[in-house]
Design a protein around this nucleic acid. Structure first.
Lengths: 214, 214
DNA sequence: CTCCTTCCCTAACAAGTGTTTGGTAGGTTA
DNA sequence: TAACCTACCAAACACTTGTTAGGGAAGGAG
């Protein structure tokens, strides 16, 4: 029941359509190893030959599955953001209070770091530069949506009196956002702390501070 | 990678001596523009031709002042770390209490971000990968020293009862460290907040939390 | 004037880059 | 059996990369 692209007889094949059909499972396998190399070495420092090496094949063979190095990066980031927003939207639609929303968002974020470590690391390093390119415009969109969700929740929290009023709300947003995502630089799945445990400690620090209450 | 292979020259190759003497002022000028480009595009994505463009000259001309692209990066980072530790050592030698030490370190960090925005941004992006190279071993040394200073202060603070005892000290260290340095990703000198003001708000959040005290 | 130094340009180099083309081993299907 | 498809290899392509060599303009010193 699946339709094959490319066997529509008379059409002179616009251009970049693959005339063969690689299996999606193999694609995902290769994308996973590519993501690891991107995360470890940086996108620009990663050559397609390094990816091919890590996958046990030759550079040219990658082009059977993908039509460019950039499209690999694209697919990695798009897939990650897709899953991320599935989680976020669920949280945001749950109708929780401001504090509970923040807690849920942070916890969800650490789960995403756990599940998509490589993709998050790539996002962290390259998003700012990539977002200017038209092809990666969805990165900018995501950032905007991200900011709206967090800022809105924080403002609601201040209005409700559960967050301190004296703080610069925008500074607070960046503070929490950065705090959460940079954890990808040291977090390793399977370590002694579960994502939920790390989230709990982070939230404890962000919400209640590290100083002893006087 | 010290020498080109395949070029079996008969000369013993003792060449690495500058037979000319460029002025230090011009060097610093060029290093500043190079740092801006590195920070904006990433080290690997930055070609020497882009640096030369930004400096209003041609690629080859850079090699009158520097002997490689890598040595530019080296000098930028080394200079920054040098000044950074001058500030840190002063703070650490002042004999302050744990909380005051943390406050001073954070404030000093934001001042460094203000003064060396580009260098900090480069450091933030590339340090982890570079630290493995022998040439940039001082980056790893700095990180170790950094960790010792912060961890020691935090432990002292817990022992003295000014920091909460329930927190994972290592997690707290990474929390504060990351919180401070990632600010470089959005901080712009000359903005509406001074480094000291940002430090004050950050410290307020880190020490006392964002939640209202119940 | 000539000599010398500083600073940059012109023009190239070899290695490495992403990508394309044509081919082919091995399995599946007719 | 033959035809076909998937997934790869081998070899090249055009281009970009960091880097080098030689030359020359400007200016000061003798």
């Amino acid at each position: 029941m699946r339709e094959r692209p490319g066997d529509n007889g008379t059409v002179p094949t616009a251009k970049k359509k693959p005339n063969v059909s690689p299996s999606p499972e193999r694609r995902r396998e290769l994308l996973d190893t590519a993501a690891e190399v991107f995360a470890a070495q940086g996108y620009n420092a990663t050559t397609v030959r390094k990816i091919a090496d890590a996958a046990g094949m030759l550079a040219g063979s990658l082009y059977y599955h993908f039509d460019s190095k950039e499209s690999m990066l694209d697919e990695i980031l798009a897939t990650f953001l897709d899953e991320l927003w599935t989680g976020y939207d669920t949280v945001l639609a749950a109708g929780l209070g401001p504090r509970e929303t923040i807690e849920a968002l942070v916890t969800e974020s650490f789960r995403e770091i756990d599940r998509h470590r490589a993709a998050v690391a790539i996002y962290q390093k390259e998003a700012r530069t990539l977002a200017t390119q038209p092809r990666f415009g969805y990165l900018a969109d995501s950032q905007t949506k991200f900011e709206e969700a967090w800022l809105g929740t924080l403002e609601r929290g201040v209005a409700d009196g559960v967050f301190r009023a004296g703080l610069d709300i925008r500074l607070t947003y960046r503070f929490i956002r950065d705090t959460v995502w940079v954890a990808v630089s040291w977090y390793r799945p399977g370590g002694q702390h579960s994502p939920e445990e790390i989230a709990r400690q982070y939230l404890s620090m962000v919400l209640d501070g590290v100083a002893v209450r006087t």
